[in-house]
Amino acid sequence: MDNEQLQNTVLELRRGVIVLAVLSQLGEAQYGYNLLKLLSNEGLDVDQGTLYPLLRRLESQGLLTSFWKLEEARQRKYYAISEAGLEMLPRLIEEWTEIVAMMEKMLKIERK
């Protein structure tokens, strides 16, 4: 199989979970670059070209709030989950759990 094709498919698979991952990490306000590293430390490498526009989209949808803060002589935009986001998060987690269970069953993966 073409390596690029594999990478693109994996990227597409991961893209679907980024919203859930981001919402789950923003209980405490984070600025974009810190969130990028946070996700990377958890094993989810996200391109900044994907993350930053996503943060803006979630903010415009009312799922995130943002504020500017001057730190180390530079302006940083902090994002945090909003009330609407907090309301949605448990439902997304529930949906995710069901998807994982369904896929494990479909792919006949046994949990150890």
Binding site: Y52, R74, Q75, K77
Partner: peptide
């Protein structure tokens, strides 16, 4: 807004 955010990210990096 976007310019300031990108600048701050690149400076961090």
């Amino acid at each position: 807004d976007i310019e300031t955010e990108i600048r701050s990210t690149i400076e961090d990096m």
